[in-house]
Design a protein around this nucleic acid. Structure first.
Lengths: 206, 206, 206, 206
DNA sequence: CATGAATGAGCATTCATTCAT
DNA sequence: TATGAATGAATGCTCATTCAT
């Protein structure tokens, strides 16, 4: 007879993740202590260890969330849209990240700003953690595949130049996304419209 | 001991910076302790404090180096080239970072891989350090200005589409650079030629 | 572990204070390290930080204890005695400090020798800590007030010369106490009876 | 052929002592580092070691100066005055310490405030340094002897009560001096006149 | 003689993690 | 199941002292 129902367990785990995300966004991964997270979540110092093996596991959970949520819009668009141009893909993705919050798979609202601040920190972790890098690369390739498919449809429809290699072109699209996120979060350049506008100018259809 | 000549002092400082860069590249800013740096440099635990006020100052020195060296090629190109296209700028910049080492202002060879691994970690620091962010933004705008000038010349020469806003287009160029660097270092995608090739395809001249 | 009862928490705090007092008495405030205190108390290096914010807070706690316990006897006497003479006040106070131990407000026995050795060191701290000095002065004035009241009663009863200003006379009484304590602890002059005897001779009643 | 004449050596030593006294008075013995002293004296970090074996020796030198200068006035008075009363001795001694500066044996002016602040810190050192305590006790007994002599002359002249034991009475006098100095420096009670006034009232002549 | 760079042991403090209750 | 007290290794940094020049 589990005292803790799976639903309640999941809810508490999500609270801890949300607390950690707030701390990480505010103070950084390495300036946040486990007691900080527990206090922010309003639980005891030992509680997070019943949901995560340690601090690294919390970081990885948030890293995964960040990756998925950042690329969810472009994946949806790549799947849904008949024949998007490159600029369409980038624009739609960045506009989705202009909202205050996005909703994760479990239905929780996640502040975009927090998410992106964690995402940038995540990149540093990938340098030192081969497992994480492998997972991240899997995710990256999956998103790249979706985008490549969309580019192929775009080529068929004439909205993407035929000379573009879809796999490699998809990599450029992801580079543009990451590049913009970095400018927004680390350099304070938040003007999404200006960025997407010039992408449209620089990357002509067909 | 007699007074250290400024040259020898500078040389020793550079050794400590180089040691720190190796440690940071290998283990990360926050997994590297000051004793680690001292040991790597072959000096006593107290020695780095004669050259830097503390660990943060070492990180900032390396952050500055990383920023300057990453953008040095594109700035040179922007200044030197008569009328580069957007793809020319990106390509030349990334090719410069395909070398094993680059040479800093003091004439020391710096391994590119180390440099880029530090650069990515630097981005995380910008989130929590307003002073550093302000400096970084200054540098960013300076590079952006150079690129914008080059784009203007390109527009005059017809190698850059007249509809492009030079300042904002320069931001897209920098986004592409950062996006590629991230893919290379954090995701292990090192194929520079493939990336630049598709940039050429996606961003037509004129 | 379950929650520590306030009683046990207080007991453990008192153990740490007692350990610190032994260390301070033996080695001095500044020659005693936090690990020394922890080891003397038989706890881990981190434990004292759960009870005190840092070393300074331990020093201040002991400084306050020392001040209170040194002056407790004279304050009691000043309150209790109908019409003490000046010599009565000094004598009774110093005799109370001739015991091996005194009992603090929480009921713990504190070795007098340790206490006085800490008291003398406390004085040095007052020079550099304005907050501590202000607190100490408050305590000083409070004790002075008690003594002054007693002197007034003594004047009414004829055991204290009418020309004495009670507030200022109280200051002289405290000077005598401090002066004796210093001689005892710093110069090794422990003969309380000789000191009080001559005070009686030098300070005639009425 | 000594490059450094004894006079110049002595002068430089005195400069270092004066610098140390300023530092100690301002920051305390243990918060002052040797580099601090060297910097305050305007000499190199190694220079003090050519005049003192280490920090402790500087502290001891200043401790000795402080002791001598604090008691110099009362010793002079005890020697010079025909038949001083107890209050005369205390009063004259404290009045001498009301000046801005006193002059040491080598003819240097020493700020009284600095001197007294060092004196109080000196007392803490005596607790942990048996050699220093022995020296201090020698000095103490020497001063006590002078005062005792003066008290004997006072008894012969009728200005000191015949019942007073001169040696022990001298101890009370010194206690009053130390007690006042402590109040002045550590508690901020600087009103010398009030203190001496009440001593005169409390300690009647004859 | 004087310099000041270098040393390296030592310190106050933090924090990820454990586990008795 | 949850708590939160306890641990103890590790960290960034300081500083008394030395000694090569």
């Amino acid at each position: 007879m589990p005292r803790l129902t799976p639903e309640r367990r999941e809810a508490k785990r999500a609270e801890i993740v949300a607390a950690a995300r707030r701390c990480f966004s505010r103070d950084g991964f390495h300036q946040t202590s486990m007691p900080d997270i527990a206090a922010e979540a309003g639980v005891s110092a030992g509680a997070p260890y019943r949901y995560f093996a340690g601090k690294d596991e919390i970081i990885l959970a948030i890293a995964g969330d960040a990756f998925r949520l950042v690329f969810a819009p472009i994946q949806e668009l790549a799947a849904a849209s008949a024949a998007p141009s490159v600029a369409d893909l980038v624009t739609a993705s960045l506009q989705a990240l202009s909202a205050e919050t996005v909703t994760d798979a479990a239905g929780h609202d996640v502040p975009v700003e927090e998410l992106l601040r964690c995402a940038v920190q995540t990149w540093s972790e990938l340098l030192r953690n081969d497992t994480a890098q492998a997972h991240a690369l899997d995710g990256f390739e999956s998103v790249r595949g979706s985008i490549a498919d969309a580019l192929r449809r775009g080529q068929a429809a004439g909205t993407v130049a035929p000379a573009v290699d879809p796999e490699r072109g998809a990599r450029v699209v992801m580079g543009l996304l990451h590049g913009f996120l970095l400018q927004r979060v680390a350099f304070g350049l938040t003007d999404t419209a200006a960025f997407t506008g010039d992408i449209r100018t620089l990357l002509p259809e067909g």
